[in-house]
């Protein structure tokens, strides 16, 4: 039914990820130490004026955390969708030589649907940033 994937047959052991853990520890250490160092090294002369937000010298009005344009959300949502569609290409790309033209046709169909969705959102104006 399925073709066995390369992911399954690969022989990497969890151990080959060990150096990555080491690097993570090192990076964490570096970041942490630097953060601490800068905390202690700098001068501390705080005034209330200094601690308010800088908004081009204009007095701050209201909370900054207001809903931003819906476009940004839309982009994020579309990204999630298209990104996982891209995920489907990965197993195909690994196996596509064995799958041959038949598999290529299937992927062509998949890309067709992908493009359908793409054209749809374009036509709907989801990607229209210029107003």
């Amino acid at each position: 039914m399925y073709t066995e994937t390369v992911f399954l047959s690969a022989t990497t052991t969890p151990f080959s990820y060990f150096p990555i853990v080491l690097q993570l520890i090192a990076a964490l250490g570096f970041v942490g130490i630097t953060m601490l160092a800068t905390h202690f090294l700098g001068p501390k002369r705080k005034t209330s004026d200094k601690l308010i937000n800088f908004e081009s010298g204009i007095e701050q009005k209201g909370n900054a955390r207001q809903p931003v344009a819906i476009k940004y959300f839309l982009t994020a949502i579309l990204f999630v969708l298209f990104d996982v569609e891209v995920i489907f290409f990965y197993p195909y790309a690994v196996n596509f030589r064995e799958l041959g033209w038949e598999g290529f046709m299937a992927v062509l169909m998949f890309v067709g649907f992908f493009l359908c969705g793409f054209i749809y959102i374009t036509k709907k104006g989801a990607l229209k940033w210029e107003d």
Binding site: E4, T5, L78, V80, L81, E85, F88
Partner: peptide
């Protein structure tokens, strides 16, 4: 031999989860 199908299942779960996220 067909144990890979479970991994494909994971792909489908991810896709559906993405649709749900959207």
């Amino acid at each position: 031999v067909d144990a890979g199908s479970a991994q494909l299942f994971v792909f489908f779960i991810m896709v559906v989860a993405a649709a749900e996220v959207a």
